[in-house]
Nucleic acid binder design. Sequence first.
DNA 1: TGCGCTCCTTACGAAACACGGACGTCGCGC
DNA 2: GCGCGACGTCCGTGTTTCGTAAGGAGCGCA
Lengths: 249, 249
Amino acid sequence: MQQPHRAEDAAPAGPPRPGGARVLVVEDDPTVAEVVSRYLDRAGHAVDRVEDGPTALSRAAVHWPDLVVLDLMLPGMDGLEVCRRLRARAPVPVIMLTARGDEDDRILGLEVGADDYVTKPFSPRELVLRVESVLRRTRPRSDLRPLAAAGLTVDPAARRAAKDGDELALTLREFDLLAFFLRHPGRVFSRADLMREVWGWDFGDLSTVTVHVRRLRGKVEDDPARPRLIRTVWGMGYRFDPEGQAELP
Amino acid sequence: MQQPHRAEDAAPAGPPRPGGARVLVVEDDPTVAEVVSRYLDRAGHAVDRVEDGPTALSRAAVHWPDLVVLDLMLPGMDGLEVCRRLRARAPVPVIMLTARGDEDDRILGLEVGADDYVTKPFSPRELVLRVESVLRRTRPRSDLRPLAAAGLTVDPAARRAAKDGDELALTLREFDLLAFFLRHPGRVFSRADLMREVWGWDFGDLSTVTVHVRRLRGKVEDDPARPRLIRTVWGMGYRFDPEGQAELP
DNA sequence: TGCGCTCCTTACGAAACACGGACGTCGCGC
DNA sequence: GCGCGACGTCCGTGTTTCGTAAGGAGCGCA
């Protein structure tokens, strides 16, 4: 129940798009705040903007963020204090914005438990990358939701997977790949899509994907030579079919 | 059998290939413009090249681009102003070309709302990657919307097609062809039209289209010898008839 | 009816593609 | 140090798909 005294503070921030996160940006310089918000928004995240520490705390109370981008230098309560108080409530991921070469601040920020930091002046693009990197590491509960389809169960929190009740011994990549397929059933993904979504690479040898799909099939499919779950869509990529219909004659 | 190269010139570009976009390149240095255009063209995009701001605006008025590659330093109206004016009309994605280390320009560009920037000197390949990254972020994949007509259903996201509930085993080209017809029911398209829209080729052997239409008919029509869905319009081309009325006697 | 043009049909060679097997490297635990 | 598993890469092979050619059928017109 905070009082939005500034128009900019009242940035509504609806729900994030699928794959996106709710990000709270705490920054008193309106220019920087604007640029950062725009970039994060474009990257598919829902952005809350506030200008000082107290507002940040109250906003977080209303809408707990998946991640906080926090300027170290703030009027009144400084970034470190904000970070501490947020952390006192729950272990939210934090990325600090610090002045260049301000070694002490950097150390301090990391001591308080920032997950990453970016020095000013910074590239907004870099910030977005760091945000997504941190999100990948700290992956919020939506990605920890258990999944199940076609006799397969995947528990991302425990990193366990099973087929018809029997536990599967999957490697890291195989697990991520299977989890991704279960999250997006019935859709075709090109090898490049998978490399981007599962590996996090924008380019690379696409045969890597092929090989990992094969290894995954070897563990998941009844008959790996005739896959029914992870189908090949010729010339396009792969698709996870929960239905698993029989082959056409 | 390699694909014919698209015309790479400074003239107004034709329609982009299916996966490509219409890109407006605003750059006064002819060398840079040439290299950039060539690379984007090779990547399957339709490139419009102009040398200054006013021309960019008028060109955009004629053919609104999917994305703009904009040099920040232009004679007369500078890049920022061009960006502002374009944005005033519609939120087109913009990638800025800036001088290295020109921090102020970079920030300025981002304030105006550039989606990304590349610092000179740059690798043309990197630019292409950024263009496609921005397009991925900004382009709503409306072409993934499911389609249905005349007992046919086509789901581009899953790349599945069915006739009266029975799944059709279509090849890549057949699928794209059918999807195109379903997107444009009741209109006649010449073989050249289809070759351009579905294949993305500006020229080539038109009998290729004929053969693929025949193969598609073989899988889609009740009686391929007397097609009711994909009609031949003599001397014109083909037309998809959702009504599928019987032949006149 | 015959002619010219368009469209259909079939067949074939070649390219593109997916797959399986195997190899080298790296990191980790023993 | 040594062995092992995970991972990324490469190569040979079988299959699918594609584009083109060539002959036959159908349509429109004189």
